[in-house]
Design a protein around this nucleic acid. Structure first.
Lengths: 193, 193
DNA sequence: CAGATATTAATAGCTGGTACTAAAAGTGGG
DNA sequence: CCCACTTTTAGTACCAGCTATTAATATCTG
């Protein structure tokens, strides 16, 4: 009994592994892969609460779609907390495990850049704007879980050119700062292509 | 004939729109939504080359999964074309529609920054490195379809500090340049490799 | 009205299952 | 070694959501 019970458990774990490798396997394919009958596969799926191929496929489609949409809707660049158009703005970005380099655990620099840059662009009071120049300084490495608060301030405006300072802090400690030179495109957006 | 042909065309376009809104509709649901018979729906699908629900679902699952994987494996920052460790490197990045701002059609600046920054880090001959300072200049707006070629060159090395220049070109025209000051972490944090 | 096109109906067969019943095989204890 | 029990396999009926095919009916158009 002990032996067969473990045989069963082992098979059910193999089943999970097979499906992890390729979730699009039919019961028939699984049966021949694990060298048991289809019925056994079905009992195992039942025991493990694994839905049938079609259900699995459908859920994969829906889940992946939602994830993609979350990425596309760019929560990545932080939430806008406060915005005084033309003057200043504040945004917040939570550092999640997928933003860091596995090797070092340090957040990739372009996330801070993206947060700062998009905030700087949001602050500009213009229908469309483009970053022209950026000077960036990373002061402290950032790790998972950090709650980055970016504060942008427009410090100069000359015609269609804006100078914006962005400082990012984590726990009230400045970890990043950037100066952006941004060009507003309000008039001449067809000028370049 | 003209009238009915257009009726048909209109219906087939409605069909596409319905499926765009909700790709998980069965022929039966589509039939009642468009107020025609199931057979008509099936003929329309045939005419338009629209696969059945299960095929659609499967392809969605696969496509979305692949996209997610591409994002996770960071093809986003370009493919490394050439790398002379410690000296120079070249990477390529194709600008896709989801990288641009809808408002202006211009690629978001942080993609170029990410491509340049990650290339600069890749070129450094060290187990781990961090960007300290970056000076960035966007010269020309980039649109969908652009094929960005970044070329990085280490121009100075002092102890654990590297200066790397990265220039990005599109059709042999320089569109972006950046200077990175990168700190290697080889001794203090990641001495082991 | 004829003739072409469009739509609907009806039927057989397929895949990949669920749900259920039952038989066969394996296993373990006394 | 046999009995009881678990595990595995087999078989049947049924389902959704189709494809493929044939045929009938409706609609339009000159």
């Amino acid at each position: 009994m002990v032996v067969s019970a473990s045989k069963k458990r082992i098979r059910q774990e193999s089943l999970l592994k097979e499906l992890e490798k390729n979730p699009f396997l039919t019961d028939e394919q699984l049966a021949s892969a694990l060298e048991v009958s289809i019925q056994t596969i079905r009992l195992d799926r039942l025991a493990k609460g694994i839905p049938e191929l079609r259900e699995r496929t459908k859920h994969m489609a829906i889940d992946a779609q939602e994830k993609l949409q979350a990425i596309a809707s760019e929560d990545i660049f932080g939430q806008l907390i406060d915005l005084d158009l033309g003057h200043s703005g504040i945004s917040m970005l939570q550092v999640t495990p997928d933003m860091v380099l596995q090797k070092t655990g340090v957040a990739r620099g372009h996330y801070m850049f993206a947060q700062a840059n998009s905030l700087a662009l949001a602050v500009i009071d213009a229908p469309a704007a483009l970053t022209g120049v950026a000077n960036v300084k990373y002061k402290v490495p950032i790790y998972t879980g950090a709650n980055l608060v970016a504060r942008a301030e427009v410090i100069r405006k000359q015609n269609d050119k804006y100078t914006v300072w962005v400082k990012i802090r984590n726990n009230n400690k400045e970890v990043f700062r950037a100066k952006f030179l941004i060009v507003s495109l309000s008039e001449e957006r067809a000028g370049q292509k």
